[in-house]
């Protein structure tokens, strides 16, 4: 293989590294408004990476991803506000609860094949949301605000809390990105990609594909739960409708990944950035915003199922974030 890299790939990687550096110094550079948007961006990025891991690699299309975000939010409230555990520990525990509840959910939905599984995850999410609305300690159907002591534990003043929540989101997003990258480069990831590319060698890689898909499903749950806890710290309250919001945590995420590009690590990043750019200009147009995203995602599927990144990728020699050894195939 040639060691020299094409200038386009070098430039692309430079942009990627610059973006990461920018995120690392953001609290010293930007105002609180921007920090808040960036926090939201990082949370959405985690959700996009997780949906992409399932849909793009594990062949599991879920429409019920918001279940684990909501579970994370409620578990965080339970630990931090009701059990009065310190917020950092409560966040981690929320991730664990999401993982624990992912086990029974998986036992159910994995009995359904491919497409049916998608709706199966949705039914499970709906049930979790309905049950959450029945928990009177958690404010029942209308929800409840985070008590002030929980917030004070993060920082004395709102400005400090913004920064702390930002750092939490950044650590979560970075962990999600790099650990998922490592997972995809492991034997499990290689086996899944061989399956995805319909290669006969899929079995020969020696990876149990059913277990690999299950691993991916379980992998996403704690990240989604952690993202739910962090989103709660931003929104400052939980409620069934908002914490289990299918629009915020599943619909937007699917659109972002589909438009950005399913089945690559660059796609979700690109899609989530594009989402926030579009939102700046279109959020005033509510319904039109969603219709446009829907139409855009349909157009992308018809033109290039690998999304915008798939279009860009045609002009590059290789991926910016190489996940497989097939990277130089085209």
């Amino acid at each position: 293989m040639l060691r020299s890299q094409s200038p386009r790939v070098v430039a692309g990687r430079a942009v990627l590294v610059a973006g990461m550096l920018m995120l690392a110094v953001a609290p010293w550079v930007f105002g609180l408004g921007t920090i808040s948007v960036l926090t939201e961006f990082l949370t959405m990025l985690v959700l996009a990476l997780m949906w992409n891991l399932l849909a793009g690699y594990a062949d599991v299309v879920t429409v019920g991803q918001h279940a684990f975000v909501g579970i994370g939010a409620y578990a965080f409230y339970g630990f931090a506000a009701l059990a009065q555990i310190r917020p950092p520990a409560a966040i981690l525990l929320a991730g664990l609860v999401a993982l624990a509840l992912a086990l029974p959910a998986m036992a159910i939905v994995f009995r359904l094949r491919a497409m049916y599984l998608a709706i199966g995850t949705w039914v499970v999410a709906e049930l979790f949301m309905l049950v959450a609305g029945k928990l009177s300690a958690f404010g029942g159907g209308s929800g409840v605000s985070l008590p002030l002591p929980v917030l004070r534990a993060l920082g004395a003043r709102p400005a400090e809390r913004f920064i702390v929540v930002y750092w939490l989101a950044l650590v979560l997003a970075a962990t999600a990105f790099f650990s998922t990258w490592l997972l995809l480069r492991s034997r499990v990831g290689i086996g899944l990609m061989a399956m995805r590319d319909n290669e006969e060698g899929a079995g020969a890689v020696g990876v149990d594909l059913v277990r690999a898909r299950m691993l991916c499903f379980l992998w996403t749950a704690p990240f989604l739960g952690l993202a739910g806890a962090i989103a709660t710290l931003q929104k400052l309250r939980i409620s069934p409708a908002a914490s289990f919001s299918i629009i915020d945590y599943t619909v937007f995420v699917i659109f972002n990944v589909v438009i950005g590009g399913v089945g690559s690590l660059e796609g979700p990043v690109l899609g989530t950035i594009l989402f926030f750019v579009l939102r700046e200009y279109l959020s005033d147009f509510g319904t039109w915003h969603l219709m446009l995203l829907g139409a855009l995602s349909i157009a992308v599927i018809l033109i290039e199922p690998r999304g915008l990144w798939g279009l860009i990728r045609r002009r590059l020699a290789r991926d910016l974030v190489p996940v497989s050894h097939h990277g130089s195939r085209l």
Binding site: V61, A114, T287, W288, M291, A295, I298, I301
Partner: peptide
């Protein structure tokens, strides 16, 4: 029809887009 015969998940995602367009079109 344009995506049938390919990965069935593509059909699923297209109908997902249609669902959101209908919901918001009706709302509008």
């Amino acid at each position: 029809q344009r995506v049938t015969g390919q990965n069935p998940l593509l059909v699923l995602l297209i109908t997902f887009g249609i669902a959101i367009i209908i919901q918001n079109g009706l709302l509008q």
